[in-house]
Write a protein that binds this DNA or RNA. Structure first.
Lengths: 154, 154
DNA sequence: GCTTGCTCCTACAGTGACTGTAGGATGCAT
DNA sequence: ATGCATCCTACAGTCACTGTAGGAGCAAGC
């Protein structure tokens, strides 16, 4: 298995399409990440095509994985900055992750209220005419809801 | 309590700000709903100010409540159309609500995988230096994840 | 050397569901 | 008459991309 101490890695160059295939990130998204500063500006060929190396690949995988885990771009930007300062305390990293976890838990809680309410609504449906529809009745009047489901908000 | 059979309701007119206060929907949002056809174009005063009545208020409450429950605008548009045809079967209403419920359940499932993974990451943190940070390690390598959390996607 | 077909480039518009701002007109109370 | 709240339109901004238009580069086959 490869270690980062291998000294003479040929650092094979990657075109943007190669990088996209290697990471599962779309070409347009890679360019977008560059435009918002999540990815650094790569070297270019004489014809102006982007040339990437192993460091770019690792960084993009980090970004993609953090996005998959739901971190926002600003948080990822900060995480990337932090990971460039290995001597610092990781308290801030912990705080970012903990905050994100708290956000996820809040979203789950809100969605569970929603699930409760929607389940109730769907069960109440007697499959008759629109004029007698309990689902529409409930939508017309929050007073018929069992829970104080707030708004979904994302 | 008011019934819709009250015949001579004075139908007190509402300015857009009154309607906003009565429903908790912001003025700009009411105008936005009008622009996308969720709310009908209201009558206007001679000076061009919008004038709303009880029917508008009920419709806006319906829209707001459906949005709070996470229905998308297109679904709400369809629900509103359906509720104008009280003799039709409510099967389509049921289908829209059931589909939305399924969507909510899927989002919950994905978020729960995320919660698992984030909890694991945060617990693994040994509060040391960035260079030894398990959280950053995990972000750099999906292989360290316990679950196939996909992407969050909303 | 030329064509074919793939890859890549920039620049900009569109998504969803709003929110915010600029700049002006109206309405009402004092 | 003045001041202030409310209202109007029109448009830009949000987030994290995705899609499109229109063009240029590059390798392989003929």
């Amino acid at each position: 298995m490869p270690t980062k101490s291998s000294p003479a890695k040929p650092a094979k160059d990657l075109a943007i399409g190669d990088l996209a295939r290697a990471t599962g990130v779309k070409i347009t998204t890679i360019r977008f990440y560059e435009s918002i500063g999540l990815m650094p500006e790569p070297a270019r060929t004489a014809a102006g095509r982007r040339v990437y190396g192993e460091a770019h690949r690792r960084r993009l995988i980090f970004v993609r994985h953090a996005r998959d885990l739901g971190f926002e771009v600003d948080a990822i930007r900060e995480l990337l900055t932090l990971s460039d300062r290995p001597e610092q305390s990781c308290a801030r990293v912990d705080a970012l992750a903990s905050q994100h976890l708290a956000d996820v838990e809040e979203r789950i809680a809100r969605l569970e209220l929603l699930r409760t309410e929607l389940t109730r609504m769907v069960k109440a449906c007697r499959h008759g005419r629109v004029g007698d529809c309990r689902i529409l009745d409930t939508l017309a009047d929050h007073g018929r809801c069992a829970t104080e489901h707030g708004a979904v908000r994302d």
